[in-house]
Design a protein around this nucleic acid. Structure first.
Lengths: 344, 344
DNA sequence: TTGTAAGCGTTATCAA
DNA sequence: TTGATAACGCTTACAA
């Protein structure tokens, strides 16, 4: 009579045992592929499992098992909608899947409290390990988790005031390489546009620019920093273009987008060289196509996942490591525009 | 002596009770904000919680609680590295967080077995609900989950052979609108490039193209389908351009990228109009900038999450719904190129 | 080889 | 208002 059907109680190991006519331990043995089960009983159990559509309650099993493992890991990124974070998450997922682990993800939006909150929720769910792209503030609160046996690996930037592994890109070398690349095409008046120096990666990249320019023997490099979005980058680029640089290096993809806008506005896309940090979806469709310093996101994800699972497998994983992943300069046109005597 | 420190056992509700000098039930009451606890005891419990750094084991609590809720949901997308999936996931996360739920994510890569496997893992963890971007094949296997009380909402495409809610974009109207838009700029020779018709969205979009062209009174619309990647789209676009259309509509962003390449190769970017389905990161940096039919990913994510949580809140959520989310044509230049008498 | 009983950390029951 | 005790679904210890 009732249109609404009460949901069926999910079958338990007991139901399976009863149907198969064996004890619960035998069912447990079969489900966990433990030895010492007569083939006949095994098949009877499997039949019962199939006919009841039994599905093991992983979370119940984890609370009892000695290692308390949940076969899940937590990942905190800054913003999952951002392509870097999305690709990273995908990589982490793939590596987690190989180890039969599931991934809980959350976005911190760069806010330390949100980061902490997510970590707390993950730990409340007893994830086996944590992968964190740390926001500002410090990560000392993670010491407590680590002491309780939850390993942490930082990604993209090292954590602060906490001992843990970290996997980061070689930001400095990347920009340095960009400077050299432009120098090879005759540039010396190379300006730099960067994000706030409080951001770890931004500071590293700026350092790379300075080091590169020093190497080039340019006394007064021109760097504009503190650019937090595309619009401010565009404005800064317009200002900088007035000083007639022959080349521009942009510290991240938002800045690159702003700079391209500015260059189009000034009509100098074909005359001023441009190298951007981070690859962009349509980089090769622009004219000239964008030369970029591309991060090896696949490698970052793999190394981070490997480190985490390594610590998970043997509790004493050795000293904490900082892995530095090389970046690759990808020439597509905009970084190979020669000076043609336009600079001084 | 040992360099390696044995991880501390995480404190339990019992430890808290002992320290506070109360029974475990009282602690549980405090943690769950239940009434009938003397303020004095409450504060003693909270003190103990703080000093032990106690953190409730959510998974243990879920196995005992009557509703068996885990405060987590599962999301299966095709490929998290894809911007559509990434933005969708972000939206779902935000809405889940509002309801204090966590999100487990996985990528199916469009493979039905991977989709099933992910769903199985999620259900094994007893997620409260499922959000699924269905792959090919059918989703009848989800009936079992729904019967056991796990609601399912399909996203982007409806599931097959299973009754469940679905939230999809208005693909047909979108392309139809694109045809009208181009017609308003004088076009009649409008060609269409689309993905395999076995893909739900591709079939809908093609239907929109056909309907639009019929409305326009064009007897023989020119559609090329079956394009599964950028390279094949580029080749198809080259072929199609030989027939001298005055405008092109592309069924998804991979195809759009291929078509833009082809148009640049032929040097017709400024002469042939272009409208693409799906927005692209740098669409406004191209010259001419790309006119696109943009999906409202925020709305899709919100509606899907709302439907799911609605079913979660009252078990009898009413009849299954198919929500159709409007898309928006975003003019940026490439879709507003006039025919200039180049077409016939 | 198999099954019974205890126990994981929590919430539910119910008597005090 | 409080807490002892049972129970959740599972694994582990141990006895048969």
């Amino acid at each position: 009579m009732a249109a609404y059907q009460e949901p069926l109680r999910a079958p338990t190991i007991k139901d399976v045992a009863a149907l198969a006519g064996v004890g619960v331990k035998t069912v447990s043995r079969v489900l966990n592929d433990e030895p010492h089960v007569r083939p006949e009983l095994r098949s009877r159990v499997l039949e019962a499992v199939a006919s009841l559509k039994y599905r093991r309650n992983t979370i119940a099993s984890s609370i009892r098992r000695l290692d308390q493992r949940t076969a899940s890991i937590g990942l905190v990124v800054e913003d999952l909608a951002n392509p870097f974070a999305a690709q990273l998450t995908r990589m982490v997922q793939d590596h987690a899947r190989e180890r039969r682990h599931l991934v809980l993800v959350g976005s911190s939006d760069g806010a330390p409290e949100q980061e902490r909150e997510l970590v707390a929720e993950f730990c409340s769910r007893r994830v086996d390990g944590l992968l964190v792209v740390p926001s500002g503030g410090d990560q000392s609160y993670l010491e407590a988790e680590r002491e309780r046996g939850t390993p942490v690996v930082f990604v993209d930037r090292p954590g602060r005031r906490v001992k843990a592994d970290a996997v980061v890109s070689d930001n400095e070398q990347g920009v340095r390489q960009a400077v050299r690349h432009l120098a090879e095409h005759g540039h010396r008046r190379i300006a730099y546009l960067g994000d706030r120096q409080s951001v770890y990666t931004a500071a590293q990249r700026l350092a790379g620019y300075r080091a590169g320019m020093k190497e080039l023997g340019v006394a007064e490099p021109q760097a504009r920093t503190g650019l937090r979005d595309s619009a401010s980058a565009q404005q800064a680029a317009l200002d900088v273009l007035d000083t007639e640089p022959t080349a521009l290096i942009c510290g991240n993809n938002l800045i690159t987008a702003g700079a391209v806008h500015a260059m189009q506005q000034r009509g100098v896309r074909d005359r001023v060289a441009l190298v951007g940090f981070d690859d962009l979806e349509l980089a090769d469709l622009l004219r000239p196509a964008l030369t970029v310093i591309a991060q090896d996101i696949a490698a970052i994800g793999r190394r981070a996942a490997d480190l985490l699972f390594q610590r998970l497998e043997r509790r004493d994983g050795g000293p904490y490591q900082r892995v530095i992943v090389p970046v690759a300069l990808t020439p597509r046109g905009s970084g190979e525009i020669p000076t043609d005597g336009q600079g001084r």
